[in-house]
Computed example of a mutant assay.
Amino acid sequence: MSQPPGDAVVAESLVVRRGGRTVLDNIDLRIRRGSITGLLGPSGCGKTTLMRSIVGTQIVESGTVTVLGLPAGSKALRRRVGYVTQAPSIYLDLTVRDNVAYFASLYGRPPSDIVAAIETVGLSNHATKAAGQLSGGQLSRVSLASALVGNPELLVLDEPTVGLDPVLRAELWTRLREMAEAGTTLVVSSHVMDEAEQCGDLILMRGGTVLARSTPAELLARTRETNLEHAFLTLIRSSDNEKRAS
C-alpha cells in the first residue's frame, strides 16, 4: 500500500517477537503528519517496541513500517527523524550546552536554537555544568533538548515527562504543541493517562495489540465516561469480556 501524503507513519501487519514471545501482534496503524499522537498503555504493553520499529532500530519478524514515505530506518531518514529514549543518550564529560551544540551542528541549526532547546527543558541554569554532574531526571532533559534542537520532521519521545515537575511538564507540552502547529509530527508515549488530553490522536495499547485509536473526545463519547483513565479501563473491560465470550 502506498503512503498517502497525510500520513507520517504507516504500520501494516507488524509483528515483533522476542525470546519466543510475541511483543507486537499484527499491528496496523496510521499517524497523521503534523499531529501529536499519544501512545498510551501500561508498562510492558509494547509501546517502546513500537517506537523502536518506527525509528528503525527494532528487528521485526513480519509486516512493514513506512516513515515519511520511506521504509523505517532508511539512511535518508536520519536527519528527518528524532528519537528520545528513556535512557539518556548524551556525553557525560561534556557540558549541557556542548551536548546540545553537538547535535545542533549535525542538523546545521543556529546558536539561538541551542539556547531555546535548553530553555524548553528548564536547564538554562545548568548549561555550563558537565552532564555527569546532573541528576537522572536532568540527564533525560538534556537528551530531550538534544532532540528538540534538530527540529526533525518526526519526533518520537519515549515517556519524555518522567522526572519533570508540573511546571516543566506544562512548558514542554506547550513547546510540543508549537512544534506540531509548525508541521512536526510527534509520537509521545506515556503510561500517565492525564497526558492523553494533550494529544490530538490516541493509540491505546494492551498486550502487544492496539486496543483503540481515536481522539480524546471520541474515546470519551464511545465509552460514555467523563475522564480518559476511566475510558481506558472501560475499553479494557469490554475487550476482556469479548475475549471470554469468543
Rank of each mutant, 00 (worst) to 15 (best):
A8L: 02
A8N: 03
E12N: 13
R18K: 07
G19H: 09
I27E: 01
L29C: 14
R30K: 11
I31S: 05
T37V: 07
T37A: 02
G38V: 12
L39H: 05
L39A: 12
L40F: 15
L40N: 11
G41V: 14
G41R: 13
P42V: 12
S43D: 12
S43H: 11
S43K: 05
G44S: 10
C45R: 06
T49F: 09
M51R: 00
G56N: 00
T57E: 02
Q58P: 06
Q58T: 00
I59K: 08
V65H: 03
V67F: 13
L70F: 01
P71N: 05
G73F: 02
S74Y: 01
R79F: 02
Y91Q: 08
V96E: 06
R97Q: 10
D98H: 06
N99D: 10
A101L: 10
A101Q: 14
Y102E: 03
F103V: 00
L106T: 01
R109W: 02
P111V: 10
S112E: 11
S112V: 04
I114Q: 03
V115G: 04
A117T: 05
T120H: 07
G122V: 07
S124F: 04
A127G: 12
K129F: 05
A130E: 05
A130F: 06
A131Y: 09
A131D: 06
G132F: 08
S135R: 11
G136Q: 13
G136R: 09
L139C: 15
S140L: 03
V142N: 08
L148S: 04
V156T: 05
T161R: 05
G163H: 13
L164P: 12
L164R: 05
L168S: 15
R175P: 00
E178I: 07
T185I: 00
L186D: 02
V188K: 04
V188M: 06
S189G: 14
M193N: 14
E197R: 14
E197P: 03
C199T: 05
L204E: 15
L204C: 15
R213F: 03
T215M: 08
E225L: 04
T226C: 04
E229T: 13
A231E: 09
I236S: 06
N241H: 08
S246I: 12
